Amino acid sequence: MTVRLNHTIVRSRDKGEAAGFLAEILGVAEPAPYGPFLVVQLGEVSLDFADERGPIAPQHYAFLVGEPEFDAIFGRIRERGLDYWADPFRQRPGEINTNDGGRGVYWLDPNGHILEIITRPYGG
């Protein structure tokens, strides 16, 4: 059997807010409850949002999307007036990158997780 990522848990102060934010921005199905989690399904991989009482350590989540999806997602980022950057260190505000001949942009979720969309895999 090939090793593939199946799911990961995303810690949040309010799983409903965080899962709903991601699903709406990415334009995917609404989160579904599963046990103590709210699940955002992304193809074969799911992000399982869980409430956390303590501090949240920011994580980075990158999503490979097609050109039309990039335009739609980036449009929702701009419609919401969210800050965005061309780099994960937030040194290039209000820009997108063109790494590896594609497009990419970073923004933050309500818990400070760094989200990214790219149209080409890095190094490819």
Rank of each mutant, 00 (worst) to 15 (best):
T2R: 15
T2F: 11
V3H: 14
R4V: 15
R4N: 15
N6Y: 11
H7C: 06
I9R: 08
I9G: 06
V10R: 02
S12L: 10
S12E: 06
K15H: 04
A19Y: 01
A19C: 02
A23K: 01
A23Y: 05
E24W: 11
E24S: 13
L26M: 06
V28S: 04
A29H: 10
P31M: 08
P33D: 06
P33C: 08
L38H: 06
L38G: 03
V39P: 00
V40E: 00
L42D: 00
L42I: 05
G43F: 03
G43H: 04
E44H: 11
E44V: 11
V45M: 06
V45E: 01
V45R: 07
S46C: 00
S46F: 06
L47D: 05
D48Y: 10
D48P: 06
F49A: 07
F49I: 09
F49S: 05
D51C: 07
E52P: 10
R53W: 12
P55N: 15
P55C: 12
I56Q: 02
I56K: 02
P58C: 05
Q59W: 13
H60K: 08
Y61R: 12
V65Q: 00
V65P: 01
V65K: 03
E69H: 02
F70W: 05
F70A: 02
D71G: 12
D71W: 10
F74E: 07
R76V: 04
I77C: 06
R80I: 08
Y84Q: 10
A86N: 04
A86S: 09
D87M: 10
R90W: 10
Q91L: 12
R92Q: 12
G94D: 08
G94Y: 10
E95N: 10
N97T: 03
N97I: 02
N97D: 08
T98R: 15
T98H: 15
T98C: 14
N99I: 13
G101S: 05
R103N: 11
R103E: 12
G104H: 04
V105W: 07
W107S: 00
L108P: 13
L108M: 15
D109T: 01
D109L: 09
P110G: 03
P110Y: 04
N111E: 07
G112K: 04
L115G: 04
I117Y: 08
I117L: 11
I117E: 12
I118S: 14
R120D: 07
G123H: 03
